[in-house]
Structure formats: C-alpha cells, structure tokens
C-alpha cells in the first residue's frame, strides 16, 4: 500500500475533496501525470481532462471531469485549483453532447466574424472530457 498524502480539490464553487489520497492523476499540456507521496515541489498548469483520485483502500478511483486549472505540490500537501470539477453523477450527458456538437459545427463552419478557434476548441475539449467521464460511470468505472 503506497503511503497516503493530503489532497485538496478546490473550485470556485467550493472544496470538493480535503483528505488523504495515495495517488492522484492529473491532465497537463503534455499528457497525464501522477502524484504520489513525497513528490517534489511542483506547480503545474492543468488542461481540460480527467482527474482521478485514489483514496486509501478504495477499490476504484474517484473520477472528475476538470476544465483546467493549476496544481501546487508542497511537502505532501497537494492543492488542485480547478475551474470546475464534476463527478460522473453530476454531468449532464445530454448537455455535454449538445455542447460538443455545437463546438464541432463552429469549428467546421468558421463563418462567424467573431469565430474564435481556441475558444471553440476549448469548448469541444471540455465537452469531450465530460462525455468521457460520464461514460466511465456507465462502463462501471475504473481506469
């Protein structure tokens, strides 16, 4: 059993988690990376993706869809500041699917004078992450 360390998941809507974890997997620009106890001090920018948190003794990780943020790791104290964190139960799949479609349409059409590629891409990415996390619930969870 790996040693536990303290994790806080904080969003503007409140503190989502404030307890021990044995492993935390986060989405960064170059891909997912993991944090375990005694990780070197780190400050990293997070991109939209899945956050999975392994609680000590839990058979499966807790999954969250994150829309990006930042993480700070100091002596076994990890704080994730995310714009949003949603559990599979909280995700509105229908809405996410619609959002993904809208973003795809925008990316394909590129007609609007105020078309903003990075914004459309961001919206698409966030919607896809939500769908992915929501799908994990249907599939029974797990990595």
């Amino acid at each position: 059993m790996p040693r536990p360390f303290h994790v806080q998941l904080v969003t503007p809507q409140g503190v989502r988690y404030d307890n021990d974890a044995v492993y935390l997997r986060l989405p960064a620009e170059d891909g997912y990376f993991g944090i375990m106890a005694d990780h070197a001090p780190l400050i990293a920018a997070l991109v939209p993706g899945q956050v999975s948190l392994h609680r000590p003794g839990a058979p499966r990780p807790d999954l969250y869809a994150s829309s990006g943020g930042v993480v700070e790791v100091t002596e076994n104290q990890t704080v994730v500041l995310a714009d949003t964190l949603e559990t599979p139960e909280e995700i509105d799949e229908q809405r996410a699917r619609e959002a993904a479609e809208r973003a795809r349409d925008r990316l394909q059409a590129r007609t609007l004078p105020e078309f903003d590629e990075s914004r459309a891409l961001g919206a698409l990415q966030r919607a896809l992450v939500r769908l992915q996390v929501a799908g994990k619930r249907a599939a029974g969870g797990g990595l």
Binding site: A28, E29, A44, A45
Partner: peptide, 29 residues
C-alpha cells in the same frame, strides 16, 4: 517564499496559462 518548485510547463508559459485565469476568478469573486 516557498521551496524550489518544478514548473510544468516552464515558468513563463505557466504564468501565461495561470494568470489570466486568476484575474477572471478574482473578478468573479
């Protein structure tokens, strides 16, 4: 001042990613 941090991505890009978000969050607050 804290410990010596590792930055991911390197500090200049990190600031570019984090600071605008911070400003927006602050306004909402």
């Amino acid at each position: 001042p804290g410990a010596y941090y590792e930055f991911l991505p390197p500090a200049p890009e990190l600031l570019k990613a984090v600071l605008p978000q911070a400003v927006d969050a602050l306004l909402s607050h």
